[in-house]
Design a protein around this nucleic acid. Structure first.
Lengths: 357, 357
DNA sequence: TGAGAGTATGTAAGCGCTTACAATTGACGT
DNA sequence: ACGTCAATTGTAAGCGCTTACATACTCTCA
């Protein structure tokens, strides 16, 4: 009935008895073609099972209605959720999303930027500002608009949407301090090449300074993303300072790991040790006790990133910067510091609940 | 210095003083070009910041070293993890992965299949067998190899890699029955268009039949993916039958939701009610009590899917079918049925533990 | 009835790249 | 010194599509 390989515009044109231009118009600007012709053409398209070849289309038209996104990892629920919203918003406007994950590796990310651009992405969504300036130069030269998400900083002037990681974490840390905690541990994500992780740590330091405390008194452990990593990080922290009364974690996943390990070690949370997270993913409300954390409006961020990026792609503007508000969610994992412990410099024998109040 | 828009092969050729063919060869088959020329060319490439245009390359060469994957949702940790492994394996072999998520919508999935193919994907990874045959016809016509993952069934003959959802769930349900449970509830994902969800439910029914029980005695609730959905589903189930002693969930996320709701309602797990999951994602070990669930070798599946698909793409074979083993993880959320309840047809007042043994 | 306006369609020139084939070059053997 | 052969490079024909421009109609209105 038909040739073995994929039908082309030409095949359709021949089958419908029109020119390729007409077929193309039927597909792209149907109103510029008369009803009867359109029907013939559509029938041929249908019959042959024709699908336009994107490569060719990209080359000829310079527009693909495709947006690329590169995220550090797919395993992070928060990106997943925001991205889902991003994709939905794109779809509504007729764009398709292509996603790549860089596994937190800058070299992989660069490769993927090029790959996505070469494939004709009309615009790119990237996470965080931190990356080789050469990448921005390249994007600039290729005239591909970029939206930076998941972070907002006064210091950066690229189009972006996100929240102030530093200020949000500072606010949370301030609450921790208010509850009397002084021996504080921090479990942070890897800060190298990750402005969000770095700013969160900075936020904690700021909070300490504002309270007249020395940021160097913090016990910090950096680790990779993952529940297990969080658990191990808690071990390391407690090894360095067994008297910690609070552990501030860079995200909910690390916090969940720390929490699990605390339970495994028989440490009462928040009685003996308070633990906080960041992001407010569903996990935060599943664990026991529920995590005190910073709520981030993922879906709103995803949606707004989409509309902002599309506006840039369609030349409506040069890109805007939007700051989103976060909110501290007070839940069970954060409690007042166990005051007496510090004074009594508990010995190993002092395992039970002391009677002093 | 140079034109404002992206440099082309032609620009490079001119800058290096060679023909476009030579430049192309330098990039694709460096050994067919003499060292000195190659250096000149590479310098020009470097100087101009040249990147090949994929669209053009696809058109001319018919190979892209790109694999596409379409998953139902990015919010599901299990896909995320398997996909991460898939991507890593692809990278090692020089392929790039492009991901789309269909939000469990067949129409969206179809659109994305076409989109990915049109963009020159050399092969596709799809989840589950269930989909419009027209899609398979299309893929066939376009000669794009497809690997089906996350499911394995004797009945399907397409290249695939996965585990037997039905048998795995049957094994788990059998354990539940062994512990004496007879009033069993099921929280399933949406089964329409989702062979995995459907087969899991079938597995439960099989287990009942094998024990001489009537599958119709199951109280089943279907719901969307998500922790909150799991929680609500438990409410519905208990409304239909307050005397359930076990709830088998289609995946860990639903189970986590059910577990949370049970806690909220003051139901003791597993004392009063046992709950099981499926997938064994990290979440399963975080919740209290930890979930009894079916362990799925995500990473292995991802890796093998990659090598299998690449073999097909490179015409090494027509595609193989691989079945992976699963393993039941017995943990705290599953316990023996509270035997006395059934006999005593507990009244509302019968809330405490009765003394009879 | 014919000029003019407007609409529908066709023609053909690329878009940037790969690759079959042709041309050039140089080394080697006789 | 000349023919042969292999290695290197160049030439040019597409790949499938869009779109500016040209052409062919149809319909008005004077």
């Amino acid at each position: 009935m038909q040739s073995r390989s994929a039908p082309t515009l030409d095949d359709v044109a021949r089958a419908a008895g029109v020119s390729t231009a007409t077929v193309s118009r039927c597909l792209n600007t149907p109103d510029r073609v008369v009803e009867s012709t359109r029907q013939k053409v559509m029938q041929a398209v249908e019959a042959l099972g024709y699908t336009p070849n994107f490569g060719a289309r990209v080359m000829a038209a310079k527009r693909t209605f495709t947006i690329g996104a590169i995220i550090p990892t797919m395993e992070n629920a928060i990106f997943a959720r925001g991205l889902q919203a991003f994709q939905e918003a794109l779809r509504e406007r007729g764009y398709t999303l292509l996603v790549s994950s860089s596994a937190y590796r800058p070299d992989v990310e660069e490769e993927q930027v090029r790959s996505l651009v070469a494939r004709g992405a009309d615009g790119l969504l990237l996470i965080g500002h931190d990356r080789d300036p050469a990448i921005y130069d390249y994007l600039n030269q290729q005239k591909v608009p970029v939206m930076i998400a998941w972070t907002f900083s006064e210091a950066e002037h690229r189009p972006s949407i996100g929240f102030d990681n530093r200020a949000s974490m500072e606010a949370l840390a301030t609450e921790v301090l208010k509850l009397g905690h002084r021996r504080i541990g921090v479990i942070s994500g890897i800060t190298k090449g990750n402005d969000r992780a770095r700013q969160r740590v900075e936020g904690i330091c700021n909070a300490l300074e504002n309270s007249g405390l020395d940021p160097d008194s913090l016990t910090i452990s950096e680790t990779t993303y993952g529940i297990e990593s969080g658990a191990e990080a808690l071990d390391k922290l407690l090894e360095k300072d067994p008297h910690l009364t609070a552990v501030i974690c860079g995200n909910d996943v690390l916090a969940a790991g720390a929490l699990r390990r605390a339970r495994e070690r028989g440490i009462d949370v928040p009685g003996q040790l308070s633990i906080t997270g960041f992001d407010d993913i569903e996990l935060a409300r599943i664990v026991v006790p529920a995590l005190t954390t910073v709520h981030v409006p993922h879906r709103e961020m995803g949606r707004k990133a989409a509309s902002g990026l599309i506006d840039m792609v369609e030349n409506k503007n040069a890109g805007t910067r939007t700051e989103l508000a976060t909110e501290i969610m007070m839940r069970g994992s954060l409690g007042p510091a166990p005051k007496l412990r510090d004074q009594a410099d508990r010995s190993d024998a002092d395992a039970g609940n002391s009677a002093e109040r």
